[in-house]
Simulated assay, not measured.
Amino acid sequence: MKNIFTENLPTKLMALVMAFALWLYAINRHTGDLSATVSLTVSVPEGIAIVEQSTEEVTIHVQGPQNVIDTVDGMIKDHKIWAQYVIRESPDGIEDQLKQSIFIRREHLDLPPAVKLVSVYPDKIDVVLGKLQKKKLKVVLQKKGEPAVGYSVVNEFIFPGEVEVTGPLSALKEVSSINTVPVDISGISGEQNRTFPWRIEIDKRVAIRRGDKTVSLPVECKEDVRVWLQIVEQQDTRVLGKIKIKIISPAEYPYLIKLQDEFVEVKVKGPKLLLDKLNTDDVILYIDVTSLKPPGPYKQPIKSILPKNVEIADKLPEAHLDIRETQRSAEAR
């Protein structure tokens, strides 16, 4: 048995080496192709910002052994391979902004040595570089969502009202304000008045006009602001019709009262949520005839009793009434 493994050992080793070499040859001979889109990162020195960039992605076409190509495909999908270009321009060489064209080559892609880069599209990228400066900008509060039904934001206060921003000179000279990040006010009510101030971050971009379109450019701001909002119940008006006028008189009032109009239309104002639930039984209208005696006619002010926080929006009309003696009161005299 031992002789089986030891006989002709050099020949057997040579055969093993040749078989391994043949396997490698077969693997490498099987060449794969891959076209994929990768992100493009352009880095700039301190004191410079990228104002415009023609594209942030490039499409690469590569070839190589199929097993390596499969590995590269997986790395691209996992965002482990991308294009990166470093600009060496000095801020001293830029007065305001400077346009440059850069070309993406193999050295800008972290590809395995066994992979051949066939093409890059586009291989020429246009960038506009801007010199950075600092500027004080007014803070504008950005809100999203709507308060709870029946509530509204009637006032807002931001401190500080201005923040220092660092950004491209060409952009900052065109703007005077910067937004906060959007603040979600969905569903807030008067209860939130006790939770202020809120600490809010500043947006990291400013919007400027470039011809007929709006361009968003990156800026830096190391500050945040505190925000106070005044949230109140929405006020509204509502018309209530056909409310009967009550007559207030002493007991044993000896006269007969006749109203020209027994019902009146009333316009009230108050919190919208309260008015939505209001009905005619909640409003009392009356006139006091205690001091009135015949003969009439009379004009008397209509008085009202209303729920809390509800008021008469328009002046109530006067009541036209006539007072007559009853037969019993005439006989008593």
Rank of each mutant, 00 (worst) to 15 (best):
residue 281 D to V: 11
residue 312 I to Q: 04
residue 299 K to F: 15
residue 316 L to K: 05
residue 285 L to N: 03
residue 314 D to F: 01
residue 315 K to D: 13
residue 288 D to Q: 12
residue 289 V to K: 00
residue 310 V to I: 11
residue 307 P to R: 11
residue 314 D to R: 02
residue 294 P to W: 01
residue 312 I to V: 09
residue 301 P to Q: 00
residue 298 Y to K: 08
residue 296 G to F: 09
residue 307 P to E: 09
residue 312 I to W: 00
residue 297 P to Q: 11
residue 301 P to T: 01
residue 304 S to E: 04
residue 302 I to C: 06
residue 279 N to A: 15
residue 315 K to L: 06
residue 312 I to N: 04
residue 314 D to G: 08
residue 282 D to G: 05
residue 279 N to E: 08
residue 315 K to C: 10
residue 281 D to L: 03
residue 311 E to N: 08
residue 293 K to N: 09
residue 279 N to M: 07
residue 282 D to F: 00
residue 293 K to G: 08
residue 287 I to T: 06
residue 315 K to M: 10
residue 287 I to F: 14
residue 300 Q to H: 12
residue 289 V to T: 12
residue 298 Y to L: 07
residue 312 I to D: 02
residue 314 D to A: 11
residue 284 I to S: 03
residue 300 Q to I: 13
residue 281 D to A: 04
residue 299 K to Q: 15
residue 295 P to Q: 03
residue 298 Y to G: 15
residue 278 L to C: 10
residue 302 I to Y: 10
residue 284 I to C: 04
residue 317 P to V: 10
residue 304 S to A: 13
residue 279 N to L: 00
residue 307 P to V: 11
residue 294 P to M: 05
residue 312 I to C: 02
residue 284 I to H: 02
residue 302 I to G: 02
residue 298 Y to Q: 06
residue 307 P to S: 12
residue 299 K to T: 13
residue 297 P to M: 02
residue 287 I to N: 08
residue 298 Y to I: 12
residue 309 N to K: 06
residue 304 S to W: 09
residue 279 N to V: 06
residue 301 P to G: 02
residue 307 P to C: 13
residue 280 T to L: 11
residue 315 K to V: 14
residue 283 V to Q: 01
residue 298 Y to V: 08
residue 308 K to R: 12
residue 314 D to S: 14
residue 307 P to Q: 13
residue 298 Y to M: 10
residue 290 T to W: 08
residue 306 L to P: 05
residue 315 K to A: 15
residue 292 L to K: 07
residue 301 P to V: 04
residue 292 L to P: 09
residue 293 K to A: 09
residue 278 L to D: 07
residue 279 N to S: 14
residue 283 V to M: 03
residue 284 I to F: 07
residue 315 K to R: 15
residue 294 P to R: 06
residue 304 S to I: 04
residue 308 K to C: 12
residue 288 D to M: 04
residue 303 K to V: 02
residue 297 P to A: 03
residue 316 L to V: 12
residue 300 Q to L: 14
residue 305 I to L: 07
residue 292 L to C: 07
residue 291 S to M: 11
residue 303 K to Y: 01
residue 309 N to P: 10
residue 312 I to R: 08
residue 291 S to R: 13
residue 301 P to H: 03
residue 306 L to V: 09
residue 291 S to V: 02
residue 311 E to A: 01
residue 279 N to I: 08
residue 314 D to E: 06
residue 311 E to Y: 04
residue 296 G to V: 15
residue 313 A to C: 04
residue 293 K to H: 09
residue 300 Q to K: 14
residue 301 P to E: 10
residue 308 K to I: 14
residue 280 T to V: 09
residue 289 V to C: 14
residue 307 P to M: 05
residue 299 K to G: 13
residue 301 P to Y: 03
residue 313 A to M: 00
residue 316 L to S: 08
